[in-house]
């Protein structure tokens, strides 16, 4: 079953079924996230890890089913921009956490 309608130029936009599949997946992932926190079924560090994993999967679901990202040749530059941005944001977030944590340790402020 194809998930996307594709026009002759290769541009994809969703169909009703692809939006519903994406929505159902998103609801399941969101409910799981909330359930893990409400039930306290895991240790704090395991909870954070599971939450992160669920969030990443849900972001991918949204990108695929709602933003229609994919390997179409027409979307090549969109994808290049996206990969660049992910790299940039990762450096900003990981770098900030590393530097600020290091500063806190050096200054013995925690």
């Amino acid at each position: 079953m194809s998930e996307h309608n594709t026009t002759s130029s290769g541009e994809s936009h969703g169909s009703v079924s692809s939006y519903i599949i994406g929505f159902v997946l998103a609801v399941i992932l969101t409910v799981l996230s909330f359930a893990i926190v409400v039930t306290h079924s895991l240790s704090p560090s395991a909870t954070i890890l599971t939450l992160s994993l669920l969030a990443i999967i849900q972001v991918v679901v949204h990108l695929h089913y709602f933003l229609h990202m994919g390997g179409h040749s027409e979307h090549r530059w969109n994808n290049i921009c996206f990969v660049f941005t992910i790299g940039f944001v990762s450096i900003v977030i990981i770098g900030t956490l590393f530097v600020m944590n290091n500063a806190a340790v050096q200054m013995m402020s925690r």
């Binding site: 969703g14 939006y19 519903i20 994406g22 929505f23 998103a26 609801v27 969101t30 949204h62």
Partner: peptide
Amino acid sequence: LISSITYGFGMI
């Protein structure tokens, strides 16, 4: 989340 899918139906 629901607003996301309603917008999607709008696009269709």
